[in-house]
Amino acid sequence: MILHAYLAAWLLFTGASVGGIAWQAIHRLTGGAWGDDLASRWGRLRRLLPLAALAAVPLLLDGHHLFPWMDEPVEEARWWYLDHTYLVWRTVGCFLAWAAAWWLLARAAAASLILWLFACGVFANDWMVSLTPEWRSSVMGLVVATGHLATGFAASLLMRAPGAPDATDQTRRDQSSLLLATSLGWVYLVGIDYLTAWMADLPYETAWYLPRTEGVPGMLGLAALAAQGFVPFLLLLTRQAKGRPFVLRAAAWSVLLGQACHVAWMVMP
């Protein structure tokens, strides 16, 4: 249980750092005052990436307590994908891809985003989906990528930037709209994943979802939907509310809480 809690905290921490890279790439492609106000904060999040990579070492060393398939001999594993050596190399590859995306920010922002998204897909399969090898989800890479965007944007909104001028009302409205759009996009992807599993009614999907709809995991799932879906929607519904700093900060805190609950819901049961 302690190792699973550490995994959840590491996934959230990594998401915030990687989200900073993705948002800076998006801003370089689109421009806008909304990103000028946050660029220095994204830079501080990016610099956490080496620390996130280092924090993966205990999980890789003690992976047998996380992944049930590690106790099987390699030749009896269900798929070649489920092998500890390959897991280590893929994790190293994901962090190298994110580091390359960081390096490409000023040179080729579009390539930076492509690298980020590809690594998110591999990372999601390795550290979330393969915790239950019988389960699989084709949308989980997008769910994780959108979660990284939500975590990175919310964290940057809550960081202090000493000496920086206060954002204008219009800038805050733009930031509020982006935070809300990211949150609703995440809710949509999570909802579609659950809906398709419910409609298909396949045994491996039912076996994965049922333990997460009861007891504490069920409460975590509801808390994640409320904190990242309903609360930001209600707080940022009007134009006047979007321009108020304390409302934007409250919505950002709610999104972070929702992401923390969702990551715990994914990996703790």
Rank of each mutant, 00 (worst) to 15 (best):
C94D: 15
A181Q: 09
L115R: 02
A109I: 01
M159R: 12
W127I: 07
L105G: 06
L104R: 03
G191S: 09
S130A: 11
G191W: 13
L158D: 14
L142C: 08
A164L: 07
W103N: 01
W135M: 02
R173I: 02
W116R: 00
A155N: 09
L195M: 10
M159C: 05
T196G: 02
Y188G: 03
W89L: 11
W102E: 02
R212M: 03
A124F: 07
N125M: 13
A161K: 08
P217H: 09
G93V: 01
S138E: 10
L189K: 05
W80K: 07
S112Q: 09
L87G: 06
A197D: 15
I192E: 15
T91M: 01
A100V: 05
S177G: 04
A155P: 08
T213D: 15
L178P: 01
M140S: 08
V88A: 09
G141L: 04
I114Y: 08
L96E: 12
A111C: 10
V187Y: 12
T85Y: 13
E205K: 05
R78Y: 05
F153T: 01
R212H: 03
V190W: 08
V143E: 12
L131Y: 12
Y194R: 14
C120Y: 08
D169P: 00
V144G: 02
F118R: 04
W98D: 03
A101V: 02
F95P: 00
D126Y: 12
Y86R: 14
A119L: 03
V187D: 05
Y209L: 14
T171I: 11
E214N: 00
S137Y: 08
V143Q: 11
G218M: 04
V139W: 09
D126C: 05
N125H: 15
